[in-house]
Write a protein that binds this DNA or RNA. Structure first.
Lengths: 152, 152
DNA sequence: AAATAACCGAGTAAATCACTCAGGTATATA
DNA sequence: TATATACCTGAGTGATTTACTCGGTTATTT
């Protein structure tokens, strides 16, 4: 099973863009500051998201990243898939040669679990996730903090 | 998220016991041979399973491990819980202080995922999992291999 | 021209993982 | 009582992965 901070960071960053893309492209520096993720680390992640056609980039001042497609069209699973090797609970990655080139005793069990996770995360769009009450609340708090920082 | 070979091995070993416990306690040496898991590694795992009241041990010749309760009463989640630190998709482990001592933007999302996984694995008993057709097939193949080894 | 911000590849410290080793202790059988 | 079996315990280790950094380049706006 692969679901590390890498995937979590990618989803968080996509949340941030979805919440701010009305004001044009969102720079990685802004995401870094708001979400507390190192800029260099984000720079490593975003080419992967772009490669999957989830975001598009604009260079130069005022540039940044924006969603390549509507947030309803992006599933959480897509984001994780983009940055994480494989979202799979089986050991063999579905190839079913777990033990001695045979499907291991427990293969079906992990396959079932993988399917469960996958369908759950495929069923949640970025738009849905972001519309969550708590997300909006935290987001507005981050807005205020940002403003305060700018004032000081 | 924590689901490594550790948890997989534990489940596989429990499968093995469930499939053979009619012939009395199952030794770790047998499990090791049948399932291709290092004996020393199993010895590390089983005290944890015993601590959770999933298996009981009998020492001495002819000894080994047997199920402490009926296989219908053991959920796959119990087995994984016993050997794996936490089966949780959130970063903070549910404590909700993910970022700056606040629930992070994506907290609810990971919490939802954790719940999904947990309820899935809690809903499958060892008995159910073992009754799977493929499991029985592989198991009988292992039986034959064991016999052949003994003959040679 | 200068500032901004995406792009790119290599490198690294720390943690985790799977696994081993070297013993010790209880119990059944001869 | 001796011996073999099999559980029990704790410490150690090599390899891999992880999160993260650094130094620099290229494109675009003002």
């Amino acid at each position: 099973m692969k679901l590390s901070t890498r995937g979590r960071y990618a989803v968080t960053a996509m949340f941030d863009i979805a919440l701010h893309h009305d004001k044009g492209p969102v720079s990685l520096a802004d995401i870094s500051e708001r979400q507390g993720i190192s800029l260099a680390y984000l720079e490593q992640l975003f080419p992967l998201l772009r490669g999957r056609g989830l975001v598009k980039s604009t260079r130069g001042p005022g540039g940044g990243y924006s969603l390549a497609v509507d947030s309803e069209e992006i599933a959480i699973a897509d984001v994780i898939d983009a940055v994480e090797e494989s979202l799979d609970a089986t050991r063999c990655g579905g190839s079913a040669d777990c033990q001695n080139h045979q499907r291991c005793l427990t293969h079906d069990l992990w396959e079932g679990l993988s399917g469960q996770i996958r369908s759950h995360l495929s069923g949640i769009s970025l738009a849905q996730a972001v519309s969550n009450a708590h997300v909006r609340e935290v987001s507005s708090r981050q807005e205020h903090r940002m403003n305060r920082v700018e004032v000081i």
